[in-house]
């Protein structure tokens, strides 16, 4: 039926193209997520039959001080993590020179990006170890005693975020390096003619051309901050006494160690609701970009 095919290939082919991704993503990710939402309405230990509790888990959540601690920590993550884009830009500017050996230097700056977060967590735990960690050595060189960061309930989250910044800054640097590579020389030239230089040039000529990169860097950083789990798990396990927990970790802890999958699923649902804000913002940006392009 070559005729039929010719008439309809306009929609059959794209449907066939997108089907594998849709089916796989739908069956594994979407269905599992919906199932989690369903689980959040139950009391469930992960093994026995589920017991319907309606919104009970959510009601309990809003009375749970640990939930608010985790939420607050996620906010700290979100704010402090936003240092990654500017720091990444800074390093990108620093290494964006054509000097012999600079290519290798660039690659070495990327390395934290490819390390497993378990490795990053372990090494920063050493940095912070009271007594003989790198931080303690630096402090003692100045005759001071380093604070035990991972024991201090007010500082511990900052210490963990700081460690997580390491690979995140590398990620942002890569993005900005790519952006700097594609700057329009005409616009830079025009800026120079207008007498723009240094920071002035950066803010008025360069950054406007990098909006798209900045947008992506911020989006990826925000998601990273909200999804943070590995570093907390490796460095503090949420401690001391839950003061460095984040929503993703609390969810895991409740599900695995307390056998409360319903409650854990409720935490995840709230986390997803928060992320929805970013998702909507992100999509609306893309749609606007599409409209401009069309």
């Amino acid at each position: 039926m070559p005729n039929f095919w010719r008439q309809h290939r306009g929609w059959i082919a794209p449907t066939l193209f997108i089907m594998p991704a849709v089916v796989l993503f739908g069956v594994v990710i979407v269905a599992s997520s919906v199932q989690s939402l369903w689980i959040s309405l139950h009391d469930w230990d992960g093994m026995s039959p589920m017991h319907w509790v309606g919104l009970g888990n959510y009601q309990e959540l809003f009375r749970d001080p640990q939930f608010f601690t985790s939420l607050k920590n996620n906010c700290i993550w979100l704010v402090v993590f936003m240092l990654a884009p500017p720091l990444g830009l800074g390093i990108a500017l620093l290494v964006n020179q054509q000097i012999r050996g600079m290519r290798l230097v660039k690659s070495l700056f990327f390395i934290p990006l490819v390390l497993a977060s378990v490795a990053v967590g372990v090494v920063f735990t050493w940095v912070y170890t009271p007594g003989f960690g790198l931080l303690a050595l630096v402090f003692s060189a100045f005759g001071a005693t380093a604070p035990a960061l991972l024991s201090d309930e007010n500082l511990v989250t900052f210490a963990v975020v700081f460690a997580a910044l390491w690979p995140q800054v590398a990620f942002c640097m890569v993005l900005y390096l790519a952006g700097l590579n594609s700057l329009s020389d005409d616009l830079i030239g025009a800026g120079q003619v207008d007498g723009a230089r240094g920071l002035n040039m950066l803010f008025h000529v360069v950054l406007p051309q990098l909006t798209q990169v900045t947008f992506i860097a911020i989006a990826i950083t925000a998601i990273g901050a909200l999804r943070s789990f590995d570093m907390v798990s490796v460095m503090t396990q949420g401690g001391p006494f839950g003061s460095s927990s984040v929503l993703a970790y609390q969810m895991y802890e409740q599900s695995i160690f307390s056998y409360r999958f319903g409650y854990g699923a409720a935490i995840a649902s709230v986390l997803f609701a928060i992320m929805l804000v970013f998702i909507v913002w992100y999509l609306s940006r893309i749609m606007r970009a599409d409209d401009r392009g069309a």
Partner: peptide, 12 residues
């Protein structure tokens, strides 16, 4: 779906 914390999908 990509923004979800993956841990919650464990059991399903």
């Amino acid at each position: 779906g990509n923004f979800l914390p993956a841990q919650i999908m464990m059991i399903p």
